[in-house]
Amino acid sequence: MNGRILFKQGESPLGLYVLKSGIASLLIKTENGKEVAHLTVGPGSILGLPALVANERHCLSALAYKSSEVSFIARKDFEELMQSEPCLFPKVLEILAKEVRAARLVLSALLWKLGSRPQLHSAGND
């Protein structure tokens, strides 16, 4: 894969990346050490936000392809921006909620494919 590694799985977040043009891949390292593509994203994508907000290590790697244009926002600058512009909090929450929803859909599809059908519970049937 030709491109620039933005961050690696297991690294502490230094900031976040905004994909202005081109494409990037999110990669997950398997148990045997092989990196596999998890998701491909396009312009407007914000990469590294969950790890930055949670102050946890990246759970995947990000690779921006050669033709991509990426902006970097350092942790300190992001924190200062969030302090000075609290109106941005709902947008950050929206982005994180969409990522959680997408991850749940992928997990659900994978479980379905593996034959482990998620159990649906209706109200009152706990």
Rank of each mutant, 00 (worst) to 15 (best):
V18S: 14
A103E: 12
H121I: 12
P50H: 15
A123Q: 14
L14A: 13
L105T: 02
L47S: 06
L93W: 01
H121Q: 02
K8T: 11
R57V: 15
R117T: 12
G33T: 06
S25L: 07
P43V: 07
T30H: 12
G22H: 11
S122T: 10
V18Q: 11
S84T: 11
K34D: 04
A24F: 02
L47N: 02
Q9Y: 02
S12Y: 05
A54R: 15
V53M: 14
E99R: 14
E94K: 04
E94M: 06
Y17E: 02
S25F: 03
V36D: 09
L49E: 15
L16K: 05
P90L: 10
Y17T: 03
E11K: 04
C59I: 15
L16E: 06
G48S: 09
S122V: 10
K113Y: 11
L19T: 09
G44M: 14
A102H: 11
F78A: 08
L111P: 00
F78R: 07
I73D: 02
A123P: 03
N2Q: 09
G42K: 15
V106A: 14
N55F: 04
I5P: 01
G22P: 06
K66F: 07
A64R: 04
P90N: 11
E31P: 10
E31D: 13
I5A: 06
V100D: 02
R4F: 06
F78Q: 03
L14E: 07
P90F: 10
G15D: 07
V70E: 06
I28W: 01
I95R: 06
A97C: 00
L14Y: 04
P13Y: 05
D126P: 00
G124E: 01
A123R: 13
